[in-house]
Design a protein around this nucleic acid. Structure first.
Lengths: 334, 334
DNA sequence: TTGAAAGCGATACCAT
DNA sequence: ATGGTATCGCTTTCAA
């Protein structure tokens, strides 16, 4: 046998005393094969430390063996997307597929000839040309978060239910005595922001409250959020609770509020629509909605495999739950 | 030709009226080929939108076409590592190699049979079994940050010069009137923390100052940093400047200091040994050392390609510079 | 149930 | 300078 190199399927076959095709069948489970034969092949493989050569497998199967991952261009939520990425990678690892991270600012042009069996798109936005291009492109797409209405339909979607978490959060605010909640939200368009805005507006109306919504600019999040918080607290001192969209801005708002003499968790409740380590370990820990990003990533990859293998016509869907973490920033009791 | 499928090298050759091998040479530039012929082949390829099939290339060349990326298990600095990752990915993209992110908590066991042409290890620590295993393993390794003395030597290293930035920072503190600096540092072992600690100690001694160094535990960074800051400021009110290692802890220390009546950028200067968006856009923007993580990632990948292609015996080295961003948290002038 | 053999697409050696 | 062809490791059809 092949001494210097990694063992090949032929080496395994030789050692098991069968032909290459039989050995192959033993692994893929395709052809019918005697249980004992299969056993022997597997044992031989184990003894040799055999690993299938992915390049050869892919060549033969006509696959690339890679799934591309497209993240949004959002410098704010890096930690969140890193978690999603690790989820995708973990799940891919087990399945022997490699993950090709796409450069976040890649042009639709450079993605035209993307070599991948599929692409996972996180938080697709109609304003992201690369994302739209990928959705229109030839290879199957799975979205983490549904695309907004009007966008091209992907082969698979992991739907995230933000509404119930927002409702739970507002109910919690209400229970803590808050009467006038506000939402500070960046002016980006994706399912997450729209869902939160809608859920917020709906809850407010159904409780006879006029929703207070402040939009901030994504180009200078920090500064425009600070200004929004300032406006909010100065001009409307009945505001007793605030929801913000990211961890960085949550801390910014908390600081601003404190500067105005407000007490977080006292006369002002604060919560973030996405969780992070920073929020959990802040001076006053901040209540947040935990998106379980790693699990979301895993789900996307699982769905991708289902899509690629089944090739079913109708789009396939999975659901992902988020949950509320109540902390000191919204608890008057403490 | 091959209508339904992607064009192959044969299609290009046919269209250019040459043989497959000639067409191949036109791309790889290996054999000697007439300029005109080469031209024609390239044009034909362009017209057909030909892209080499990576699986076939890899199979033939005996490569995997993938480079693995090992990040440290540090939940604190996710944003930083995401940047490094994108740098690696960008550079890889251009070279047609795919990046296999390793699950951060993967066991050395599961990495034994890693399929990759090389592995990039960021911030290798002697305490990270997976990192050590990879360094000892068969495939060439490139480290982003040198491994500590005593660790197995990688094929390539991107050396980061922390010392000069730390010196610059302490000189700056000094110029702003600070006389008694402290360093709060987590108890992890890697080149970055050791370099900063050493540079700090050295600078202090060479300026006739007793270095004040507080170690914090990585298992509960936030809380142990807060305690450290508290101890520092309560028991030693001559401390007039603090360096911390991460962005999250910088904000924590700043909060704690304010709670004790200190003014950041006034009677207490604060700086972080690594930069982040959060620091730049904090209420009081925090002075920090910018590691240019994306560029570091790019460098690692470039070095990896050099290593894989040259197979030179002696370890090869690249240098990466970091720079100081002075902000309000350390500027008395403002 | 198993084996022989064709072929996936690209590379590189050996002729010409 | 260019073309023919064996080869990389694996999957899968077809025969036995």
């Amino acid at each position: 046998m092949n001494t210097s190199q990694a063992p090949t399927l032929q080496d395994v076959a030789d050692r098991a005393g069968v032909s290459r095709s039989t050995a192959s069948f033993a692994f893929t489970g395709r052809g019918r094969i005697a249980a004992g034969t299969r056993e022997r092949v597997l044992r031989a493989a184990g003894e040799l430390g055999y690993r299938a050569n992915p390049a050869a497998q892919n060549l033969r199967r006509g696959w690339t063996g890679a799934v591309a991952l497209k993240l949004p261009v959002n410098t704010e939520a890096m930690a969140y997307y890193m978690e999603v990425t690790f989820g995708v990678v973990e799940e891919a690892h087990g399945a022997g597929v490699s993950v090709t991270l796409l450069p976040p600012d890649s042009s639709p042009e450079s993605l035209r000839h993307l070599q991948a069996d599929g692409v996972i798109i996180i938080d697709p936005s109609p304003d992201d040309d690369a994302a739209v291009g990928l959705l229109n492109g030839g290879i199957p797409a799975v979205c983490g978060e549904a695309p907004l209405p009007g966008m091209p339909e992907p082969a698979g979607v992991v739907v995230v239910d933000h509404r119930s978490a927002v409702v739970e959060l507002l109910d919690h605010f209400s229970k803590e005595g808050a009467r006038r909640p506000a939402l500070i939200c960046p002016d980006i368009r994706n399912n997450w922001t729209e869902s939160v805005r809608n859920a917020f507006a709906l809850w407010c109306r159904s409780h006879g409250i006029e929703p207070v919504l402040l939009m901030t600019s994504m180009s200078d999040v920090a500064e425009s959020t600070r200004r929004a918080a300032q406006n909010l607290l100065v001009h409307d001192d009945e505001i007793d609770s605030v929801i913000v969209m990211s961890d960085g801005t949550a801390l910014g708002v908390a600081n601003e509020a404190r500067a105005q003499g407000r007490v977080i968790g006292g006369d002002l409740l604060v919560a973030a629509a996405v969780d992070s380590l920073l929020l959990a370990s802040a001076g006053t820990p901040v209540t947040a909605i935990d998106h379980a990003p790693r699990e979301l990533g895993r789900r996307c990859m699982r769905l991708m495999r289902a899509v690629v293998e089944n090739r079913s016509e109708s789009p396939v869907t999975d659901r992902h739950a988020v949950s509320l973490h109540v902390r000191a920033s919204s608890s008057r009791s403490s």
